[in-house]
């Protein structure tokens, strides 16, 4: 539904987006990750037709955004960063305006407003003026505006920014629910959000895509992925290290914490992707040495490690 090909944007000498390509199909929720200033907002603004690209093509539902902007924009709902709203209107009036601009009138308009208000939990403030709303309600009004015409494609720039944890949870489940029938792109710098809501994630740094995959695939890139953490009670750290060092499948053993009497050690596997073998071997070593094992746990990898590794190593290159 969304096809981005070799998209670039330069502002004067500064390259904001550099040769970015990806596609999003119906039923996909694409998380757009990246440090601040990585080019997330600029990319979204080019997709929604707010700013023209310096080079490259954006196709939305087959329509080139530069050549057929009206047709492309009709298919999209867009929540800009920080959810700008007309402050001199009521919530209902504002949503009505957005519906009318999109050509929804009469009874359909009333129905569309009701639906958006229901989905975004805005009933309590329906007749309230936008400038008296709290940040959470403002944000949800912006969200309601983006889905007023039940678009096939939703583009959202930091949809959970400034919401409290409960509201974040609501918005994420809303995104997940809508993602079943739509193509959704949203940007965030909150990593749990990607795991909670996305079917796919792209990490962008300094205008370039540096990783593209499912949250699981990205997590597997973590150094810690598939390592084991063993927490052992009443044994010297050096003994634990030496003991675990005898495990054939292990590449490296580190002591994570050593607070007598509990020692926590991490065992890294020899090759990435090793299955339960390593855990079994650790268990055997522990049994032979009569260690009191509190816990043995496999690490799945952490997205924030991957994120930090990818985006920091890139910075160091420069």
């Amino acid at each position: 539904m969304i096809k981005v090909e070799n998209l670039s944007k330069t502002f004067g000498p500064k390259v904001a987006v550099n040769d970015v390509s990806f596609t999003v199909e119906r039923g996909e929720i694409l998380g757009f990750l990246g440090p601040n200033g990585a080019g997330k907002s600029t990319t979204m603004r080019m997709i929604t037709g707010y700013i023209p690209p310096t080079a490259g093509v954006v196709k939305v539902g087959g329509n080139d955004v530069t050549e057929k902007p009206i047709e492309a924009k009709r298919l999209m709902g867009y929540l800009p960063e920080s959810a700008p709203l007309y402050t001199d209107m009521t919530v209902e009036g504002f949503l009505g305006f957005c519906a009318e601009v999109r050509g929804i009138k009469g009874a359909d308009k009333a129905k569309a407003i009701d639906r958006a208000i229901d989905m975004c939990f805005l009933k309590a403030v329906r007749h309230q003026s936008v400038d008296t709303l709290s940040k959470g309600f403002r944000h949800r009004t912006g969200f309601a505006q983006a889905i007023i015409h039940d678009p096939d494609i939703l583009v959202m720039d930091e949809p959970t920014d400034g919401l409290d944890p409960n509201q974040k949870h609501e918005v994420r489940s809303l995104i997940r629910r809508m993602g079943q029938s739509k193509a959704i792109i949203f940007s965030t710098h909150i990593l749990e959000e990607v795991e909670a809501a996305c079917t796919r994630a792209i990490i962008i740094d300094q205008g370039k895509i540096v990783a593209n995959g499912t949250p699981e695939e990205l997590k597997a890139k973590s150094e810690l992925a598939n390592s084991y953490v063993a927490s052992i009670n009443g044994t010297e750290a050096s003994a634990v290290r030496d003991g675990l060092g005898t495990v054939i499948q292990s590449a490296k053993v580190t002591i994570v914490t050593d607070k007598a009497p509990i020692v926590v050690a991490r065992v890294f596997p020899k090759k990435a992707g090793a299955d339960g073998e390593l855990g079994q071997a650790i268990f055997d070593v522990a049994a032979q040495n009569n260690w009191k094992v509190n816990e043995i746990k496999k690490e799945e990898g952490r997205l924030d490690d991957v994120f930090r590794n990818i985006t920091l190593s890139d910075n160091q290159v420069q």
Partner: peptide, 14 residues
Amino acid sequence: RLGTLELLLTMPIS
């Protein structure tokens, strides 16, 4: 100032 220009210009109108 309000940032609504971005909203207005991403609506399907010229």
